[in-house]
C-alpha cells in the first residue's frame, strides 16, 4: 500500500506539470489537451462502450501471440542450451533480428494474412519469442552440470533431465523472459494496429488521429 502511494507520486507530478503546460497554453491545448480533459474523454470512451470491442481485439491478439511465443520460445531456448549445433544455427539469427523493430515486418504479414487477427498475432509471436528464447537459453545453459550428472548417474534419460532438472533450474529466468515478453506483446500489437487494422486500440488511435481528436488519441 505504502509502495503504491510512493509509486504514484512521480506520476502525479508529471501529470500536474502536463496539466499546467496545457492550461497556461504554453503548448496550444488543441495539440496537447490537459490531462483532466483526456481522463474525461477516456471515461466517455469506456462508458459509451465504443472502446470495448477494440480492447477485446487487442487483448486477444496480444495474449494469443504471447502464449504461442512462450510455448515455442521455451522449447527452442532449452533445445539451444542442450545442443551446440542448434545454438550455432539459431544464435546468429536472433542476434541479427532482435534489435529490429518488429512493427517493420507488419507490411509483410499483412501481405500474407491480410489485416485481420492472424497478421498481428504472427508479429506479436515473433517479437515476444525473442526474449523468451534468450532468457530460457541462458537459464537452461546455467543449470548446474553437477545436477545433470547426478540425474544421469541415478538413471534419468535425456527427457527426464529436461523435465526434472533443466526446466526447474531455468524457471526463474524463463519467468523474467515472459515478463519482458508481456510488455513487448502490447507494444507490438498496438504498433501493428496503428499501421493497419479494422479493430483494436491502435486502430481506434489512428481513427481519432484522422478525425483530429488528440483527446481520445492520447486517452
Amino acid at each position: 500500500m505504502a509502495r503504491t502511494l510512493q509509486g504514484s507520486v512521480p506520476v502525479l507530478i508529471v501529470a500536474g506539470l502536463w496539466e499546467l503546460t496545457s492550461r497556461l497554453a504554453l503548448i496550444d491545448p488543441e495539440h496537447l489537451p490537459p490531462v483532466s480533459a483526456i481522463l474525461r474523454a477516456w471515461a466517455d470512451l469506456v462508458f459509451s462502450g465504443h472502446i470495448l470491442p477494440h480492447l477485446a481485439a487487442t487483448l486477444y491478439r496480444a495474449l494469443a501471440g504471447l502464449l504461442l511465443a512462450i510455448v515455442f520460445g521455451v522449447a527452442l531456448g532449452v533445445w539451444m542450451a542442450r545442443s551446440r549445433p542448434v545454438e550455432r544455427f539459431v544464435d546468429p539469427l536472433i542476434t541479427l533480428t532482435y534489435p529490429l523493430p518488429k512493427v517493420a515486418i507488419i507490411p509483410l504479414t499483412m501481405l500474407w494474412f491480410g489485416i485481420g487477427h492472424l497478421a498481428k498475432i504472427l508479429v506479436v509471436f515473433i517479437g515476444c519469442m525473442m526474449p523468451v528464447i534468450i532468457h530460457t537459453f541462458h537459464g537452461a545453459r546455467g543449470a548446474d552440470h553437477l545436477l545433470i550428472w547426478s540425474a544421469q548417474a541415478m538413471g534419468a534419460g535425456e527427457r527426464a533431465i529436461l523435465r526434472k532438472v533443466i526446466l526447474p533450474a531455468a524457471l526463474p529466468a524463463v519467468l523474467s523472459g515472459i515478463r519482458i515478453a508481456l510488455a513487448f506483446s502490447f507494444v507490438i500489437v498496438i504498433g501493428a494496429e496503428l499501421v493497419a487494422s479494422r479493430a483494436g486500440l491502435g486502430e481506434a488511435k489512428t481513427g481519432s488521429m484522422t478525425t483530429c481528436s488528440p483527446r481520445s488519441w492520447l486517452s
Binding site: L146, W149, S150, Q152, A153, G155, P168
Partner: peptide, 19 residues
C-alpha cells in the same frame, strides 16, 4: 560407455536439487 545405476557418485558440492 555411459553413466549407470551400478555406480553411485557423491560430490563435494552435494549436488542436491534445490527445488
Amino acid at each position: 560407455e555411459a553413466p549407470g545405476t551400478d555406480r553411485g557418485i557423491v560430490f563435494q558440492e552435494y549436488a542436491l536439487f534445490p527445488w
